[in-house]
């Protein structure tokens, strides 16, 4: 069970208080109508499944109800950092 630091509450809390919301940094296209079916399909359905660093969206559902981002290693389950919506991660995989 994870121990997650909520950047809004400023505290470590148990995983039970949070909901995982999938891959982070997936912005809704500003003009959906301009998207082809393929592009919209990418936005809707296609997600990364990396072995290693993964940027995830979480919400402190049973706490402050705020969303935030987590950089997590999917192999070791280490949480490398948490950062607020609109901020960028400092841990990134070199591609």
């Amino acid at each position: 069970m994870f121990h997650i630091y909520c950047p809004h509450c400023g505290e470590y809390r148990e995983e039970e208080e949070f909901h995982a919301k999938g891959q982070a940094h997936i912005a809704r296209p500003l003009d959906p109508e301009a998207c082809s079916d393929k592009e919209w399909g990418e936005y809707l359905f296609f997600r990364k499944n990396p072995r290693g660093l993964h940027h995830e969206l979480w919400v402190h559902a049973a706490g402050c109800r705020k969303f935030f981002n987590v950089t997590r290693d999917t192999q070791t389950y280490e949480i490398k950092e948490v950062y607020k919506i609109g901020e960028q991660p400092s841990f990134v995989t070199e591609e």
Partner: peptide, 13 residues
Amino acid sequence: YEWLELYHQTEWP
């Protein structure tokens, strides 16, 4: 409720 918050906090803050 969580869905409304999601859109407000992440897409249209």
